[in-house]
């Protein structure tokens, strides 16, 4: 089956949008972190994610041609055209949710990048190799906090467990293969996400045990984001993020 530039574009966007939206969520915490060090850490992680997403979007813009830039790709799409998973758009309800969402994404992100470095696409390989080094630090940060909160006070444990119960149902979507994922995998470009799910669950379970938390029973799971069908939160995120482009169309730095 032919793998067109359009397929490649969709695949790249599907990876990258997660980083843009999660970065945006973390950015909301700038100046609002629970303490100075954590505030800086969270915005540093956001910065890493934006750095990575720029590399993906520059590549995506190149694939579209038509003089498109990374900013066009980042800011000038409609909600349905963003392909991030639902997990990353979930709100910063409380610090337990911030850490839970980060940890659940980091574990996925690292597993995915470790496969993406084997891609036959040279650009994706380079971005992934760079990303692995950064995301290892992210997972260390979120994993440490998960432990600290889970194995902390009665209150912190309760809140961390609450966040895990609410967020875990969003994780299976990360491993669903969309049409673009399948095409990319068959072309040797993309990652076989489905094959990583078992390993993912094991890593999450291990960390939860260490944090004296229970692995929530999976009664159902939520998906749709990767097909462009988002939760209610997404509209608000885009409203905030696209504000400058609406006010000053075509602006750039």
């Amino acid at each position: 089956m032919e793998f067109t530039d359009k397929d490649r574009y969709t695949y790249v966007i599907g990876i990258a949008d997660n980083m843009l939206i999660l970065g945006q969520r973390l950015g909301e915490l700038c100046g609002h972190g629970p303490n100075l060090e954590t505030d800086i850490a969270l915005t540093n992680i956001a910065l890493d994610l934006f750095g990575q997403v720029r590399s993906y979007y520059q590549y995506a813009a190149q694939l579209v041609g038509e003089n498109k830039s990374e900013d066009d790709v980042a800011f000038l799409r409609r909600e349905r055209e963003y392909l991030n998973a639902l997990l990353v758009e979930q709100p910063n309800t409380h610090f337990g949710y911030v850490i839970g969402r980060q940890f659940l994404f980091d574990v996925f992100h690292l597993l995915m990048l470790k496969e993406l470095v084997k891609s036959n696409d040279e650009t994706l390989r380079a971005i992934a190799a760079k990303g692995i080094k950064e995301v290892s630090y992210h997972q260390r940060f979120s994993g440490d906090w998960l432990k600290r909160l889970g194995d902390g006070t009665e209150e912190s444990q309760h809140k961390m467990q609450e966040a895990m119960n609410d967020l875990l149902p969003y994780t299976r979507e990360l491993f669903e293969m969309t049409e673009a994922d399948t095409k990319a995998f068959e072309a040797g470009v993309g990652v076989n996400l489905g094959s990583l799910y078992e390993q993912y669950q094991e890593i999450v379970q291990e960390h939860l045990e260490e944090a004296t938390l229970d692995m929530p029973e999976e009664l159902y799971f939520k998906s749709g984001g990767k097909q462009g069908i988002h939760s209610e939160h997404m509209g608000y995120i885009l409203t905030d993020m696209q504000y400058m482009q609406r006010t000053y169309p075509q602006m750039n730095w």
Partner: peptide, 13 residues
Amino acid sequence: MISQFGSTACKAL
């Protein structure tokens, strides 16, 4: 170590 992330991405505190 106070924090894995310091004043810039490349530093820890």
